[in-house]
Simulated assay, not measured.
Amino acid sequence: MQISRPPSPRPTAPQPRRAPPCPRGWILAVPAGLALNLAVSVIVLGQGTGALVAGAVYLAAAGIVAVGMRRHYPHAVMGACNTVTLMRVALTAALIAPLMGDAPAGWLVAAVAAISLTLDGVDGYLARRANLCSDFGARFDMEVDAALALILALHALAGSPVGAEVLVLGVMRYLFAGAGLIWPWIMAPLPVSYFRKGVCVLQLATLIALQIPQMPPDTGIIQARIASVALVWSFARDVLWLWRHR
Rank of each mutant, 00 (worst) to 15 (best):
A111P: 07
A177S: 07
G198S: 02
S4V: 07
A39I: 06
V168K: 01
D120K: 13
F140T: 03
G63V: 02
F235E: 04
P21M: 13
D123H: 08
P31W: 01
L207R: 03
P20T: 10
L148Q: 12
L175F: 07
M78F: 15
L132A: 10
L38H: 06
T49D: 08
Y194A: 14
P161T: 12
R70T: 14
V65S: 14
P20C: 06
T12S: 15
C200M: 04
L207A: 05
A54P: 06
R17L: 10
F235Y: 13
A39W: 09
A149N: 11
T206E: 00
I151C: 07
P23N: 05
A56F: 04
D141E: 13
L117K: 02
I43Y: 14
A146S: 13
G55I: 05
R24H: 03
L99Y: 04
L202K: 02
Y194N: 10
F235S: 04
M69G: 07
Q203C: 08
L28D: 01
A39N: 11
G170F: 06
V30M: 07
R139Q: 09
V30P: 01
L240K: 04
L231Y: 15
P213I: 00
G68P: 01
G63S: 09
V122H: 03
R24Y: 07
Q47D: 14
I226L: 10
P98H: 06
V42H: 07
P14V: 00
G220E: 04
R70W: 06
P161C: 06
L119V: 02
I96M: 15
F195C: 00
R128V: 08
L175H: 00
L148K: 13
I208P: 00
L126S: 14
A103L: 07
V109K: 01
S160W: 04
E143V: 12
A153L: 11
V192N: 09
R10A: 12
M187G: 12
M100L: 15
H245R: 10
P11Q: 08
L99W: 06
C22F: 09
R5N: 09
S228P: 15
I64S: 12
A188Y: 09
